[in-house]
Nucleic acid binder design. Sequence first.
DNA 1: AATAGATGTTAGATAATATTACACAGAAAG
DNA 2: CTTTCTGTGTAATATTATCTAACATCTATT
Lengths: 136, 136
Amino acid sequence: MSDDLRRNMALFPIGIVMKLTDLTARQIRYYEQNDLIQPARTEGKQRLFSFNDVDRLLEIKALIEKGLNIAGIKQVLQMQEPALEQTEITTTSEEKRKDMSDKELHQLLRQQIMYRDATRHGEGALIRGELSRFFH
Amino acid sequence: MSDDLRRNMALFPIGIVMKLTDLTARQIRYYEQNDLIQPARTEGKQRLFSFNDVDRLLEIKALIEKGLNIAGIKQVLQMQEPALEQTEITTTSEEKRKDMSDKELHQLLRQQIMYRDATRHGEGALIRGELSRFFH
DNA sequence: AATAGATGTTAGATAATATTACACAGAAAG
DNA sequence: CTTTCTGTGTAATATTATCTAACATCTATT
């Protein structure tokens, strides 16, 4: 329980996240601008990232390297998001989905499967696996 | 193994550490000035703290609240430091020790014992215990 | 009362980040 | 084969965060 708190706690400034993810500030801000991440802010409006944010950025990076564009990444990420409120789960996800053609969706799912096959090792250890990339 | 890397990795600016430890910047810098901690620095000379640094600051804070002064804290911390190089362990520690009177040392040891009794729970989980204070 | 230790506070300098705008290469579309 | 769109680089300027150094304040000890 406090593990969740830990991982969601806003801790890192963008400079650290750049080193951790090997992304540029420009990229990180661009992904935020396109709603792929929503880092917290200090009083002075500076971004603060959590472990989860860093994890997500690493996923984004992996998907970018697989050739996905922002729209595709957005779909993939929202698919693997845990069920939030039990109200309107279906409506929300269906609404989002209706923006894609069948072909696009199938291609996306294929790529997502490949991605998960490549990265899945231990069940709950997926997170650990992501974080371990910090230390190369 | 990479756990050690993680805990020693310089990640947090002083502003975050202030919130995490509930210490002021003044205090943190003062403790550094007195060699209780040695945080890393950015190229631009700004402090960067690791999880271990934060842990240590929490220990320092606990000792301060017990009424120890800097010299006392220094002794306690260096006692619980893991054996570093096998060369000159004895000489180094004895050199440090000879600065204290017997009375001071005994008082210190008494307090240290009380401290360890109060905080010890699971063996290697001491770190976890400390870190959990972040989330009150 | 005087001293020393620990912290508060302020001032000025520097580093880190924010925002915005423009540039540009490659992919996608026409 | 142009044109357009996307993702990223880069530069300028403003603001925030941190740094160091100095002086002030408070407490406990002498």
